[in-house]
Nucleic acid binder design. Structure first.
Lengths: 249, 249
DNA sequence: CTAATAATTGCACTATTTTGCGGGATATCT
DNA sequence: AGATATCCCGCAAAATAGTGCAATTATTAG
């Protein structure tokens, strides 16, 4: 990897996360922390970023102002994304659904990790296009008018042809008795089909969504293998799920 | 191998990957790294590329940058797009391939026109997401590492399930005897499959691409129903195609 | 056609850049 | 203050770049 390439990657990282840790970058880009620090010093010298203890932040006075990506509760989602990324292993086949946390998640994938990622999200697929070691497969189908993703019967058919090791789903509502629910009927159907196309299901959700219910049922809690929230695993709201045999991360 | 030939190969490499390593190029082109470095220095001197330690990268501020070259031909593409848009009729099923002219083309679609558009282009699909009266269907499959689009066997399978009224294809090379050719093997296969999934095929190409040939055959001229260029239909270069029964717009 | 001239290329050698590491300084947190 | 993490400095190894030169090839002049 060229030095400029690496520095561009750092800038890109700051653009999406607003901040970077030297240690994380070191892992992500497979170079020593010293090299990262030297890069940060250089970039800061050009006025691109602001160097801080432990890493760097977006420079508010930068000539090229970074357009901030509007992801709600980004800080919490970052925590979830980082936990989720620890589950990846080279060679795995991953199924991903959702465009908030998953979009952050891919930044935590090390450069040298080889993965196959199936998704129905246009944004995710577009982002993954730049990752040379990741084979991205887009599940074809009709594009929803609500979200930039494919939904419906075509996607469900396509899912019948594949089987993933891990399925990362972003869920908006989960209830210990009712299970996972969704506000969109087609989305619920599609998610349900995704459950059947993976060995393991990892549900990512914000803690304030625990206990909520929406009109359309996706699956019951027993079908989930792991829940990831921004809280620590021993958070009191999570007991009722761990009691049902669901792993908490 | 001629020097210019080699330098063109380097430019091509940068065009597709946005970067090159001197060491890789040396292996690829079977010359010493010194020669590569000299080439890079020369190309950088002309402002074509930006030389960096370890290789070179695409020059964003280049006078004749590749991206800008696309843009510089945007005027011609606009003319083609406007002509092409006149073919649309409400209720039609359209198949679209390509991300330059087609991206401009959708802007010429009237707001009240109802269409179904099949495409394998991520950019096009993302743009069409905002058009409420257009039902967009993305042909699923593996995402190319060269272009943000799905290619290959999955797309070809998906094409087997559909049939469109019109197929708008952007072609890079057309020759009266050899037919339509493409520089990418998978792309050529996929285009070929698209020909079979539409009643009418409309080929859009810039006039300076007429008569050129690339390694991989897509289809012969007889399979095209219409050619659209930025020139007027009675342009001398187009006679040889109209003589073969192809409509010119 | 031949000889002179110019351009191109690879090689040996040296210079520069980049990188990781150890050691000590500095900052952060409790 | 003590523990830990982070940072900075200098060094050495490795990678990459520049330079001069000789051999080869292409081009041009006569």
């Amino acid at each position: 990897m060229l030095k400029v390439e690496r520095q561009n990657a750092i800038l890109q990282e700051i653009r999406t996360h607003n901040k970077v840790h030297s240690s994380k970058l070191s892992q992500l880009l497979n170079v020593s922390e010293d090299t990262i620090r030297r890069d940060l010093r250089e970039l800061a010298g050009n006025g691109h970023i602001k160097k801080v203890h432990g890493g760097a932040m977006a420079n508010p006075n930068s000539p090229e102002s970074f357009r901030k990506q509007k992801i709600s509760q980004q800080a919490e989602r970052e925590i979830i994304a980082e936990k989720a990324a620890s589950l990846f292993q080279s060679g795995q086949v991953i199924l991903m659904e959702g465009e908030s946390t998953n979009l952050l998640l891919v930044d935590y994938i090390p450069d040298d990790m080889t993965l196959t990622i199936f998704t129905n999200s246009l944004r995710l697929a577009t982002k993954l296009f730049n990752y040379q070691n990741i084979e991205t497969v887009l599940l074809g189908g009709k594009i929803s008018h609500k979200y930039p993703m494919t939904l419906g019967i075509d996607v469900i058919n396509a899912l019948g042809e594949i089987h993933a090791d891990l399925f990362f789903t972003e869920i908006d509502s989960i209830h210990e008795d009712i299970g996972i629910t969704d506000g969109d009927r087609e989305n619920a159907y599609t998610k349900k089909a995704m459950f059947r196309s993976s060995s393991q299901v990892i549900a990512m959700c914000l803690s304030n969504e625990i206990g909520t219910i929406q009109p359309f049922k996706v699956e019951s809690v027993s079908q989930i293998h792991m829940i990831i929230t921004e809280e620590s695993p021993d958070h009191h709201q999570l007991n009722r799920f761990s009691n049902k045999g669901v792993q908490i991360l």
